[in-house]
Amino acid sequence: MSNWRFVISKRWFGYLAVAVVFAVVCVLLSNWQVSRLEEKRLENSRVLDNYEDDPVPLDDVLRSLDAWNDDQEWTPVLLTGTYLEEEQVLVRNRPRNGQPGFEVLTPLQLPDGRVFVVDRGWLPTGSAQDLPDVVPDPPAGDVTVTARLKPGEPALTGRGAAEGQIATVELSQFDERIDAPVYTAAYGLMASETPAPAEDRPLPAFKPELDEGSHLSYALQWIVFGLLGFAFLGYAIREEYRHLNAEDPAEQARAAARERKRVAKRSDADVEDDILDASVR
């Protein structure tokens, strides 16, 4: 036992502290990946529960202008009103299949004056690089829209946008510009509109994929990394023990036994390679 006393030192306690801190960090990162997995599963359940439902009147889902519940995401709603084309804006930096582009947000004014923002779809960046080549006009007059609910997005600090564009779907910006009550907690991804526009409408949003991602495997990997930290510490202790006790007869006997096992495991091909290497030298 006295041969192991070197472990009881500030140096090795320091190494142990590093291994413990590393393991704690790995556990925290693993838990973060598990929480990401739970969030993804919850998102998938909302898609399964709501996406294919029959559309219902907007008032049946959103009881007030600032009402929102995460369980309402992807719920199809039915609206009738008139597009406020002059208040239409583009949301910049919206890639689709790796191609840069814009989302087209057009406020829809309901018969009672309230305004609900509709995302009419996606347009690619045009030759000018900061605008689509063409922004199709929305249908004029009364229109009936089916849209799937999405929560508004927060403001992005330090992100600006050109005239007629916004950096994120920050619905409060519409409330500031439009002289009418605006829904500020949710907007809608268009599924259909009647009558159809005279020009091709922007590309509709993709149906979200039901994919849990790699969060579970990442969580397990972080646990393995934490355990490997202690395994490496044990290996380092063992190597130093062998170095410090190289002259000890008992350790020499163990080293000889390990060498015999190593030689016994060598194949004939390994022996032939050693002979060839020796002849070359």
Rank of each mutant, 00 (worst) to 15 (best):
P197K: 11
R5K: 04
A19Y: 07
V104E: 13
P249H: 08
D268H: 09
V34G: 02
D119S: 10
I275Y: 12
V271F: 14
W222M: 05
R41V: 06
V169K: 13
P136S: 05
P55K: 00
A67C: 05
D273V: 11
D200L: 06
V25R: 05
L42I: 14
V21P: 00
H243T: 14
R148D: 12
V118P: 00
P197W: 11
G14I: 02
A191V: 15
L123G: 04
S192M: 09
R254H: 08
K207R: 15
A147P: 01
V27I: 14
I275Q: 07
E240D: 08
S217H: 10
G14M: 02
D60K: 02
G188F: 10
R36E: 14
E38I: 11
L189D: 11
P76C: 08
N31M: 05
R96V: 11
P249Y: 10
I178R: 03
L90S: 12
S214H: 13
R41P: 00
L65K: 03
R254K: 09
Q33L: 01
L58H: 07
H215P: 00
V224H: 08
K150T: 15
E39H: 02
F13P: 00
D211L: 03
I178W: 12
V117E: 04
R63N: 13
R92W: 10
D71E: 14
G158V: 15
E170C: 02
D179H: 03
L210W: 06
L16Q: 03
G81N: 12
